[in-house]
Simulated assay, not measured.
Amino acid sequence: MLRSVFEKMIRVYKNPDFKFDKNISSKIILIFAFKMFIDWARGCRLLLFFRVPKFLFLGRGVAFNYLHNIDVGRWVIIGDFVTLGGLGRGRLSIGNGCRIGSFSRVVISTTFNNLGEYITLEDHVAIGDYSSLGGSGGLSIGANTIIGQYFSAHPENHRFDDPGQLIRKQGTTRSPISIGENCWLGAKVTIVAGVTIGDNCIIGAGSLVAKDIPDNSLAVGSPAKVIRNLR
């Protein structure tokens, strides 16, 4: 009974084809249900800030910085010890059905003297554990894109053209990063400022993406190069 109830809920709100593995026992489902209840209860703390959570599930130690500038959709799951930072010119927007892995940082700005732009995660984006997403130059990730652990996106570069100055005093340049819909980025992928990745792309694990990747491409390497068209 409990199995079928949870399967129906997950099919409606997350995955229409979901079915528990036959080796999952009723005990495991009860443990899962209890954990989700605790995470849901943590999400209700947003009521203290006059925000109404829409089935928000929070792990332990989640930090919201500048919550007034953060939008969170329905059925969002945020893992343990995630930091969300909304300080910026634009907003930090997390769409419906998104998942952010434990120990990740999703932060628009880290400085008060030059605010960052925005971070937008469209519906059903999944980010792996230990990831770092910055929004200084702007970052957008399209719907249904899934990303492995240790992902990093850096829409900002330090200048180093003056050898007579410390690098940290030379300022930065910023350019937006855009990742399309229905992409799969493997673990430890890094994307630098100004890069656009098209729709339906796969980026191999460990790749450094320094140039644009067109739609329907499989790209691997450091720097990443397109090795095959997927259509």
Rank of each mutant, 00 (worst) to 15 (best):
L67T: 02
L30F: 13
L56W: 09
R105E: 12
S131W: 11
N157I: 11
T173F: 06
F37S: 12
F112K: 07
V220D: 04
L133P: 02
F103V: 07
F50A: 10
L87W: 07
N144H: 13
G61V: 07
L218P: 01
Q149I: 00
S140K: 10
Q165C: 06
I28G: 07
F55K: 13
S217Q: 05
G97L: 11
V195L: 03
T145V: 00
S136L: 05
N114D: 12
G148Y: 01
R45Q: 10
I31C: 07
R159C: 14
R45W: 12
A63C: 02
T120N: 07
K169M: 09
S4K: 15
G59D: 14
Y130D: 14
N182E: 08
R42S: 08
A219Q: 07
I213Y: 04
G164S: 07
A41I: 14
F81H: 15
G86I: 00
T173N: 08
A153G: 10
P223Q: 12
E117G: 04
G180A: 05
I147N: 01
K169H: 13
W75Q: 04
S136D: 09
G204K: 05
K14V: 11
W75A: 02
E7M: 08
K35M: 08
Y150Q: 14
S93I: 15
P16W: 09
I94W: 01
I213R: 02
I94S: 09
A205V: 06
A219G: 06
M1C: 12
V189N: 00
L30C: 05
I213V: 14
I167V: 14
S4H: 15
L92Q: 05
V107I: 14
L87C: 04
T120C: 03
I10G: 11
T172D: 08
N216K: 10
G204M: 02
T111P: 00
K35C: 07
D162Y: 08
D21G: 14
G90Y: 11
K14F: 15
D199W: 01
T173V: 13
G95L: 04
G79A: 10
G101E: 09
S175W: 03
N200E: 03
H154C: 04
P223Y: 13
S152A: 14
F57H: 14
C183L: 02
G204Y: 05
